[in-house]
Nucleic acid binder design. Structure first.
Length: 434
DNA sequence: TCTGGGGTCCTAGGACCC
DNA sequence: TCTGGGGTCCTAGGACCC
């Protein structure tokens, strides 16, 4: 909703979050290039970014780019704890806080003006209090819409504040690169550049018919509403997840029957466990297989009854992975397997029937004509869930030895990145390059 | 010496039904 | 003999975001 009055939407974004926490915890890291993660860079400090280090980059390449780079394993529990303290600071200004990830949130301070003054002053004191009380740098953008506030906070980084007053919007946006627009990534940017469009100002003078043909209806719509300063999205708590998935990079591996069954078993265990915790089950199972050239192939299957049993999910996913492999006989190695469940519905009852019968490669026979096995599976899953609830997720589970190769990501990092399923809880995701 | 993990949404085409 | 249009569901791939 485009507010009738002034700029009251704030976008608050912690700078290089994981790396900043590391520099807070260990003062000797301050001012130095820091990368969180070993095999792959999960986050980089601004000093590291200055040498070209970015999230997602292989560790060896980051160290080559940046000889003084300090690599740390990561204090994932601290990331969670400190982010909660930052959110407490935000909520001390207004209850209207929408968290979009672990390090990022929108606020609408329209109702807080009488108490705390104009939005620009609120933003400044918010930044000061996060710095004083938590010790972290945070950038804030202030504008009339979420989209514009987000662009403003990107411009403000690092450790800055940018306020876009309503009568300055056009002048503010015009010189900015199109890549700052939400939904415009590398591919769209390249396509626009091919037409000579590099700035948001140039976009504004481009016929919408052209944009729609070149970019599709959805992205063109985003651009149009930005240009018109209309943003249909108000500040509100996030929706719950619509799918739950897990994936594991494997290095280069021959996809033996055993490797597939074991890896998919581990992934299905994670996914189904999270589904059951949330009282959800899903009808569509999607697997992803990535090959040596990093291109991936997906296969989806939709079954009549929602799935949340670990074994059932593992069987469906294993069969799907083998179908992909059979469709690509030329591929000799796989580099990643993924399992995801969508079409979620609240789980009502036991899953008494299996979607198919027959042998599962690596998993033995899955024949269950009477459906009794389904009930037993439900019971044993529940038993595992109960032990985990008491003693933690690592207390029972699939052997993860297969994932012990170099470059695997810590379990705690996976958990940080999980979005809560069901219940309309806060959305918490991992920070990006920011 | 090769590239993490969690998600969302869009698009296009096909099957199927009325 | 030839042929309509709309709607829904599903699948595969891809772009994008954090």
């Amino acid at each position: 909703m485009a507010p009738g009055g002034g700029a009251t939407i704030l976008h608050a974004d912690l700078d290089a979050y994981y790396a900043s926490v590391e520099q807070l915890l260990d003062p000797s890291l301050r001012g130095r290039p820091v990368a969180v993660g070993g095999g792959v860079v999960l986050a980089a400090s601004y000093e590291a970014r200055a040498c070209g280090v970015v999230a997602g980059m292989p560790g060896w390449r980051a160290r080559r780019l940046c000889p003084g780079l300090v690599t740390v394993g990561g204090h994932f529990a601290e990331y969670q704890r400190l982010a909660e303290r930052v959110v407490e600071v935000l909520r001390s200004f207004t209850p209207v806080v929408e968290r979009v990830s672990i390090d990022e949130a929108f606020l609408d301070v329209a109702g807080a003006r009488r108490l705390f003054g104009p939005p620009a002053r609120i933003a400044a004191s918010l930044r000061r209090r996060v710095r004083d009380q938590v010790g972290l740098p945070i950038s804030v953008g202030v504008a009339r819409t979420k989209h514009l506030a987000k662009i403003a906070s990107q411009v403000a980084k690092p450790d800055g504040l940018v306020v876009v007053e309503p009568d300055e919007e056009g002048r503010f946006l015009a010189p900015l690169p199109v890549g700052l627009v939400w939904g415009v990534g590398p591919a769209t940017r390249a396509r626009l550049a091919a037409s000579g469009i590099d700035t948001i100002g140039q976009l504004a003078t481009t016929p919408s018919v052209f944009l729609e043909r070149a970019l599709g209806q959805a992205v063109a719509g985003t651009l149009t509403s930005l240009a018109a300063n209309v943003d249909p999205r108000g500040v509100a708590p996030g929706r719950s997840a619509r799918s739950v998935g897990a994936q594991a990079a494997l290095g280069r591996r021959i996809p033996s029957t055993e490797l597939v069954w074991t890896t998919v078993g581990y992934l299905a265990d994670r996914v189904a466990g999270r589904l059951r915790d949330a009282g959800q089950a899903g009808r569509t199972v999607t697997v992803r297989v990535r090959f040596a050239d990093l291109r991936s192939c997906t296969r989806a299957v939709t079954v009549p009854r929602p799935v949340s049993a670990t074994r059932t999910l593992a069987e469906l996913a294993t069969v799907a992975v083998h179908e992909v492999l059979e469709a690509r006989p030329a591929e000799r190695v796989v580099t990643l397997l993924g399992v995801s469940v969508g079409n979620l519905v609240p789980e009502k009852t036991l899953q008494l029937s299996l979607p198919f019968t027959g042998d599962v490669p690596g998993g033995g026979p899955a024949t269950d004509p009477g459906g009794r096995l389904g009930a037993r599976r439900w019971g044993s899953d529940r038993a595992v869930d109960a032990v985990r609830a008491r003693f933690g997720r690592g207390s029972v589970g699939y052997a993860r030895v297969i994932l012990g190769h170099e470059g695997g990501v810590p379990e705690a990092f996976r958990e940080l990145a999980e979005r809560p399923v069901g219940g309309g809880a806060q959305r918490v995701r991992s920070p990006g390059a920011g």
